[in-house]
Design a protein around this nucleic acid. Structure first.
Lengths: 106, 106
DNA sequence: ACTCAATACTTCGTGATATGATATATATGA
DNA sequence: TCATATATATCATATCACGAAGTATTGAGT
C-alpha cells in the first residue's frame, strides 16, 4: 500500500474512532486495524497534531496501574469529518478520470 | 481541499494524462484541470520523479520556436496505475469506516 | 522466581513530497 | 508596446508517516 495515498485519510480515520465514544491510543489502533494498519508512532503523532488543532481534548486516567490518555472529539473535530466528506467528491472525480477509459476491459 | 488527501493521487493522475497519447507539461495541466488543479511547480516535480522512477520517458522537440518536452508512459507507468486500482480498495474501506454510522442522517 | 507477551505511551530522525515564489524565454493579439 | 498565453526549471519550506528505540506495568505460563 502506497503511503502517500493514505495521507489525509488517517486524521479522519482517528477522529472517526473517537467520534461516538472517547477512546485511548492502544484501543484506537485495534479499532482501526480492520480498515488500515497504523503504527504507534504514527498514531501518537496524529493524536498530538489533532490536539494542537483542537479537534480533540485529552484526559489522563489511571486504569489497572497503567496510565491511559482518553481522547474526546470536539466540534472542530466533527467539522473536520464533514469537510472530508466534501473533499471526497473531488477524490472520486480524480478516481473516475483514472479509471474511465477501461470500462470495456474489466 | 486538503492537500494531504491528494497525495498519491497526483502521480497516477499525471500518468493517466499521458496514458493513451504522449503529452507535454502545459497540456497535461490543462487536461487535468477539470478534475483537480495542479500548479506548474507541482507538475514538473512529479514529472521529474516519474522519469527517475522510469515510469515515463522524455523526448524534447521544438514546436513553434518553443521547446516542448513530450512525455511517454512506460510499462512501469502502466503498472503503477494498476497498482493504484488495487490500493483503491483499501482507501474505500477507510472511507466506509468514516461514513458508515450516518447512513440514516443523509 | 523467571520469562515473555500484551498493554500503554513517548521521542527522535529520516525520507517523501506539494507548493509558492521566482526566473527565463518566445509568440501573438490588442 | 504591452499584456497574455505558452513552456519549462529550480529552490526553499512546511507537512507528515513511519521505523527504531525506549520506559514501565500487568498477567499468564513454566
Amino acid at each position: 500500500m502506497d503511503i502517500q495515498l493514505k495521507r489525509g485519510l488517517l486524521d479522519v480515520c482517528v477522529l472517526t474512532a473517537i467520534k461516538d465514544k472517547e477512546s485511548y491510543g492502544y484501543q484506537i489502533i485495534k479499532d482501526i486495524k480492520p480498515y488500515t494498519e497504523m503504527s504507534e508512532s504514527t498514531l501518537y503523532t496524529i493524536l498530538k497534531r489533532l490536539e494542537n488543532a483542537q479537534m480533540l481534548t485529552v484526559r489522563t486516567e489511571e486504569y489497572g496501574g497503567r496510565l491511559r490518555k482518553y481522547y474526546h472529539i470536539t466540534q472542530s473535530g466533527l467539522k473536520r469529518i464533514e469537510e472530508f466528506k466534501e473533499d471526497w467528491k473531488e477524490i472520486l472525480s480524480i478516481y473516475r478520470f483514472v479509471t474511465k477509459e477501461d470500462e470495456d476491459n474489466e
